[in-house]
Amino acid sequence: MTLKFVIKRLVFLVLVIWAASTIVFFIPRLSSRNALRERFGELARTGGFSPGDMEKIIASMQQQFGLDRPLLEQYWQYLHNIVRLDFGYSLYRYPSTVSDLIAQSLPWTIGLLLVSTILSFLIGNLLGGISAWPRAPKWMRAVATPFILLTGVPPVIMAILLIFFIGFKLKWLPLGGAYSVGQVPNLSWGFALDMLRHQILPALSLIFGSVGGWVLSMRGMGITIQGEDYVNFAEHKGLTGGRIFRDYYMRNALLPQVTGFALALGTVVTSAIIVEGLFGLPGIGTMLNLAIRSNDFPTIYGIVLFITITVAVLMTIVEFLYPLLDPRVRQS
């Protein structure tokens, strides 16, 4: 891994973040909607204060948010804030900043994402590898087929189906929420178990919703690799089937899958967020749902930018790890 490669990737990362921030900055300013006016109009309707004072309040708020300054100055200030991960204030829960809200809900999302992504990557690649491995017993290869059919079922729909069949019909698991109604969050085993039970369906919908894609791409990889010379060589050396499968076949087929993983990150995170919203877990997805419903624009934009930056950074990290996994890339 040369220094030139590292610098190139870092410059690219900055470019991606800059592009996303710029889009998110200019699109709302092109639109005719005024977030402050809508929010205060809503408050005035529900009787917070007399509508006559509204214009004054809006003017003072605009000054406070810096919305009365020239556009380029605002843009510059905005980029400055993004670098410090400062996304401004939430309109709906005003004194809290968007970063505070994200920090509160982030642990839930990370937990769900980590478990489901790792499991679906492992299961999917193993099944895909087996399904293309000519020496595997027939029943083992057949296991992959139903998972391939699942590629047409996105995690969101999987979530609805699971809520209906497992939660509603069979009543095995709760329909939604982070913990049972009436429970107070505490550090007991009982509560932890209750919380875990509520995480199973969201995790399953994400796993089932994305495992098919891995099976499919790994199967394609496996088919190309089994004809390679080194696999033939290993066979003629008389190595056992398991050894060839593990060290010659899977190891090589997995490498491109890591790149695929980096590319899929954006979709994976987006799906997780929407599924979370469906189950009403207190993660980033539910916060985004709430923000959309209450026209809390700074929160929507903050969440979108935060996720974009995270995905871009993670992709860059995977790219840095890649040469460590594949000696061929390291040399060239």
Binding site: I23, L30, G266, V311
Partner: peptide
């Protein structure tokens, strides 16, 4: 194309759709 590719398109679409009247 390469700069736009890693951006989660759906979220940017959320911003656009949300900004519309």
């Amino acid at each position: 194309c390469q700069v736009l590719a890693p951006i989660p398109v759906l979220l940017i679409q959320v911003v656009i759709a949300g900004s519309l009247d």
